[in-house]
């Protein structure tokens, strides 16, 4: 029996994302950036609308949009006194609404909103797959040299600064990497579910990890399992693929509580 093309594409795309979501998601957990991820993913829909409006590839529009929003956020955080979560809340919901309003101005464009909100993994084309694999590989490549500096600023920013690390640049790089992953992931699980793929596997791996690397790798492995499980569920039970993956990830998270915590 051979696997149909669309299923193969879906599997490869999901696996590429799970791989990169492990280490990046670990930082999202360590640095409490879950809401940041959520904000970027809400804004992704605005990117889609702009892409359709300007007639450029939505993937490209979302990628550029997410990167720009991450930059805007860093600037705003430095320039005004509102707390980060207030700022994120404002940006998340206004960009999501802007996206929906913009789409309503284009009645001739018929898009399946559900597929953007919850992902359409089984419709991943060969071209989409290239984007996803290239994006994930790029993020992993950048992450390798950044790993130790990122850990250092996560433990104590001022200490890292005194030791000569360019803290602001490293922090910005992490935000841009997360933005890139979210742009890549939109096709897979949709804007409303992206953050879950970053944080659930990392949170599940956390209880059983003794080093940062074990947690990152564990999160990647759990993510891979969730993608395989979710796709199987979708294939055999005809459930929506994106939510099925998230359900599998959540099940793995629950399972991690049942397993005995490894003695330190």
């Amino acid at each position: 029996m051979t696997m149909p093309d669309f299923l193969l594409h879906a599997l490869l795309a999901g696996l590429a994302l799970a791989l990169v979501a492990g280490p990046l998601g670990s930082f999202v957990v360590w640095r409490r950036m879950a809401y940041f991820g959520d904000t970027l993913s809400h804004a992704a829909l605005f990117g889609v609308a702009i892409g359709l409006l300007l007639d450029i590839s939505p993937t490209l529009a979302v990628t550029v949009g997410c990167l720009l929003l991450a930059l805007l956020l860093v600037t705003l955080q430095q320039r005004q006194p509102l707390a980060s979560d207030t700022l994120l809340g404002i940006l998340a919901h206004s960009t999501l609404s802007l996206g929906l309003v913009t789409l309503s101005f284009m009645p001739e464009v018929r898009i399946d909103l559900m597929s953007y909100l919850f992902g359409d993994l089984l419709a991943v084309s060969r071209e989409d797959l290239y984007w996803i694999v290239a994006g994930s590989a790029l993020v992993l490549l950048i992450l390798v040299p950044l790993w130790r500096p990122l850990l250092a600023i996560t433990v104590h920013e001022e200490l890292a600064r005194v030791e000569g690390l360019p803290v602001a640049a490293i922090r910005l790089a992490l935000m841009l990497l997360i933005a890139l992953v979210i742009a890549v992931a939109m096709k897979i699980v949709g804007v409303l579910l992206i953050t879950s793929l970053l944080i659930i596997p990392a949170a599940a791996a956390q209880r059983h990890a003794r080093t940062p690397e074990q947690m990152a790798l564990g999160a990647s492995l759990l993510g891979l399992l969730a993608v395989c499980g979710g796709l199987s569920l979708s294939w055999f039970q005809d459930t929506p693929a994106g939510p099925s993956i998230v359900v599998c990830a959540a099940a793995l998270f629950l399972l991690s509580f049942l397993l005995r915590r490894r003695a330190v």
Binding site: L151, T154, V155, L159, V162, A209, T211, P212
Partner: peptide, 26 residues
């Protein structure tokens, strides 16, 4: 400059041994 900050609070979710903490110095 070697700096010893007043306090250090590391997120409980970050599994970091003392050895790894020291090796965060380049």
């Amino acid at each position: 400059i070697g700096y010893m900050p007043q306090k250090l609070s590391v997120e409980a979710t970050l599994p970091l041994s003392v050895l790894r903490f020291l090796r965060l110095v380049a």
